[in-house]
């Protein structure tokens, strides 16, 4: 009995914290999304309930379709390349060679850098006039590309930067997954005369499936949230061409002189709905793995 009480006592601070710092902001966000706030009523209160009007405004806005499509493209393409490159690197490092541990640690750097640092570095690499990428294109005789200022390339550019940032995470998790595959499996495969490629497709890849699932789902949850990289590189522009739900929500609430908190919160809540679905999927997969 006493230890049960103590158990609760140790949890109280965290539970109170979750209520104040998670539940309350989330509730505020929900409240914002169903009221017609102006800057005045935001400060002084008394905004009228408008029900789903903000959501209807958002859904009716042509930017919504663009943002949704961009979010899907940005997420899918980022995940695919982060995973593929991360897995290739993990397989490479898994063999173990001189310096492999040090090099693997260095691979982590892009992931640990503040996002504003990575994003501004990429912005300068891709700068139209003075960027290294365009200079390199010129050297090989290609014409330069307006990476960040052309609507055709802005989404590609932010996706490239985001892939670079995400590779280390995939590498580390997949690498530890590879370490957990017993050596005997490979030995058996080699005895059966399987080639390296066959071993990968018929042994390594299937055995890695649980870890891959977790990696991709976590990646999905992280990528949906991405805001900094896009905002710092392109502000979602030009003319919305690289806007995602996350940056649009920020733009509506904070990007203009005239903030529109209601629609901003509405977009945020749509995003959270998608994230929660992804999150529940993640938890289900993890539970199933713990059982098996």
């Amino acid at each position: 009995m006493r230890s049960r009480l103590a158990g609760w006592a140790f949890l109280v601070p965290l539970v109170a914290y979750l209520a104040v710092c998670y539940a309350y902001p989330l509730f505020t966000n929900l409240d914002l999304s169903v009221r017609g706030y102006t800057v005045r009523s935001f400060v002084h209160g008394g905004a009228p309930l408008v029900g789903f009007a903000n959501y209807l405004t958002v859904f009716g806005d042509p930017t919504f379709r663009t943002a949704l499509l961009n979010t899907v493209l940005f997420t899918a393409v980022s995940l695919f390349f982060q995973y593929a490159i991360g897995l290739a690197a993990a397989l490479f490092f898994a063999r173990g060679f001189r310096l492999s541990a040090t090099l693997r640690a260095l691979f982590l750097v892009p992931w640990l850098l503040p996002l504003i640092v990575s994003a501004s570095t990429w912005a300068w690499l891709l700068n139209s006039e003075s960027g290294l990428v365009n200079a390199a294109l010129k050297v090989v005789g290609l014409s330069s590309v307006n990476w960040l200022t052309s609507p055709d390339f802005s989404l590609v550019s932010v996706t490239i930067a985001n892939i670079w940032i995400g590779i280390p995470f995939n590498l580390v998790v997949l690498y530890s997954g590879l370490q957990n595959i017993p050596r005997e499996v490979y030995e058996a495969s080699a005895l059966d005369g399987a080639s390296g490629w066959q071993t990968f497709w018929h042994v390594t890849f299937p055995l890695l499936r649980p870890v891959s699932a977790i990696t991709l789902l976590l990646g999905l949850v992280y990528t949906l949230k991405v805001f900094d990289v896009i905002w710092i590189m392109t502000k979602g522009g030009p003319s919305g061409s690289s806007t995602t739900l996350a940056t649009w929500s920020y733009e509506l609430g904070f990007g203009n002189a005239l903030p529109r908190f209601g629609p901003s919160a509405a977009v945020g809540n749509v995003l959270i709905l998608i994230a929660v679905v992804a999150g529940l999927l993640y938890i289900r997969v993890q539970r199933r793995q713990e059982l098996s």
Binding site: T28, L32, F227, A246, N269, V276
Partner: peptide, 27 residues
């Protein structure tokens, strides 16, 4: 339940928390 909530909490996009905090802090 608490462990579950902690997992879910990590998945909430920052922009939503930021807007919620902003509303509270302004008030």
């Amino acid at each position: 339940t608490l462990g579950f909530l902690l997992l879910v909490a990590q998945m909430i996009p920052g922009i939503i928390m930021a807007l919620g905090f902003y509303g509270i802090y302004v008030k």
